[in-house]
Computed example of a mutant assay.
Amino acid sequence: MSDNRIIRVGISVGDLNGVGIELILKTFEDKRMYDLCTPVVYASDKVISFYKKQLKFNYPINFIANAEGIEEGKLNVIKVWEEMVELQPGTPTQISGQKAFESLAAATESLNKDEIDVLLTAPISKDNIQSEEFSFPGHTEYLESKIDGESLMILMSNDIKVGLVTGHIPVTEVSKTLNKDLICKKIDIMYQSLLQDFGVSKPKIAVLGLNPHCGDHGVIGKEDDELIRPILEEYQEGGKLVYGPYAADGFFGNRSYLKFDAVISMYHDQGLVGFKAISFGEGVNFTAGLSKVRVSPDHGTAFDVAGKGVANTSSFQEALYKGISIIKKRKEYQNLTANTLKTKK
């Protein structure tokens, strides 16, 4: 990130027939946003103009061919494709999925070139985006294949951060996938992210168990006692505040998450059902562990309201704010650790 420019937030538009472009246009109608960042959207002038007219937005947009044309104080749109495509707001199509991928691929390339500082991804349809070029269960896995580092999906709000040991896999595969190396890797990524991305000096992390009631001492499964608990004891012996395992239902139900900086969940719905019950509409999806910063809203394409002008921008805007905050915290951390005095041997 250059010290001489306002933070650039690159935005992939998601499924063209979803709410992504509406969220972008609504968000940057507010001129105050340009004091926080310079938005760079990856799409086409024709698609943006279609939604701009349909949703009756009148502010000017800077349509450009590449990053050299980016201007501060404006909504910049890099033209990823030239041709007009058929748009059917509310209905996922093959072409809307294909262009969602083209937008994502172009934005990711710009991120790796440091043309933008943060990537904000609007929602995709995980079905119609599938192709020879995109054979991933979601954004997180695609980005991990393109950006240095190993990823951890974190859903977060002001009250809670939940990271997932296993992500987009069937429930039948969860226990087969879990092992010491994987669990430790995800805990370590969360720990480092709390340090560098959120400024937590001494992270305190809760780890959820796998089975109901954490297995009830082996009656409902042995993974909690034989796999998870010994791992957490090793962390504690090493001086790290990593505790558990906790039964997920009681942990969320009695608001124990408020006592911790973050929570590690063993599988997708175990963590995200609790998270979304607490923070839906205000949550942010953050891909930790990578060398670049990527955020997104915590909801999907919302085809049921697409094109109607009623999409709620709260989560999208919160993702924008969190992305800007994380890149600033990460830079502060890098400066601090780079200037640490080395102890003489």
Rank of each mutant, 00 (worst) to 15 (best):
D3C: 00
R5V: 08
I7P: 12
I7A: 12
I11W: 12
D15R: 07
V19H: 04
I21H: 06
L23T: 04
I24N: 05
T27H: 02
T27K: 03
F28V: 00
D35C: 02
T38C: 14
P39C: 06
V40D: 11
A43V: 05
D45V: 00
F50V: 00
Y51R: 08
K52Y: 02
K53W: 01
Y59E: 04
Y59G: 08
Y59N: 10
I61S: 12
I61L: 09
I61A: 13
I61C: 08
I61N: 08
I64Q: 01
N66F: 06
G69N: 11
I70A: 04
K74H: 13
N76G: 07
V77I: 13
E83H: 14
Q88L: 11
G90C: 09
G90H: 04
T91L: 11
S96P: 11
A100P: 11
A100H: 09
A100E: 10
L111D: 06
L119F: 10
L120D: 07
T121K: 01
S131A: 06
S131G: 03
E133P: 00
F134Y: 15
P137H: 05
E141Q: 14
K146E: 13
L152H: 07
M153F: 12
M153C: 05
M153I: 11
M153Y: 13
L155N: 12
K161M: 11
K161P: 12
K161N: 13
V165T: 13
T166G: 06
I169G: 09
I169A: 05
L178E: 03
N179T: 02
L182T: 13
C184Q: 15
K186Y: 07
I187S: 12
I189E: 10
Q192F: 01
L195Q: 12
Q196H: 13
Q196N: 13
G199H: 03
K202R: 11
I205E: 01
A206Q: 10
N211Q: 07
D216P: 02
G218Y: 15
G218N: 11
E223M: 10
D225C: 05
E226M: 10
E233Q: 13
E234N: 10
Y235P: 14
Q236L: 01
G238V: 02
G239N: 01
G239E: 06
V242I: 15
Y246A: 12
A248S: 15
D249T: 03
G250Q: 05
N254I: 15
Y257C: 15
L258D: 12
A277G: 10
G281K: 02
G283I: 01
V284T: 06
V284N: 01
V284L: 04
R294V: 09
S296R: 05
P297R: 05
P297M: 07
P297V: 10
P297I: 04
P297A: 08
D304I: 01
G309M: 07
N312K: 13
E318C: 03
K322G: 02
I324T: 03
K328Y: 03
R330W: 06
K331F: 02
Q334P: 00
N335D: 06
N335H: 11
L336Q: 13
A338Y: 04
A338C: 06
T340F: 12
T340N: 04
T343N: 14
T343A: 14
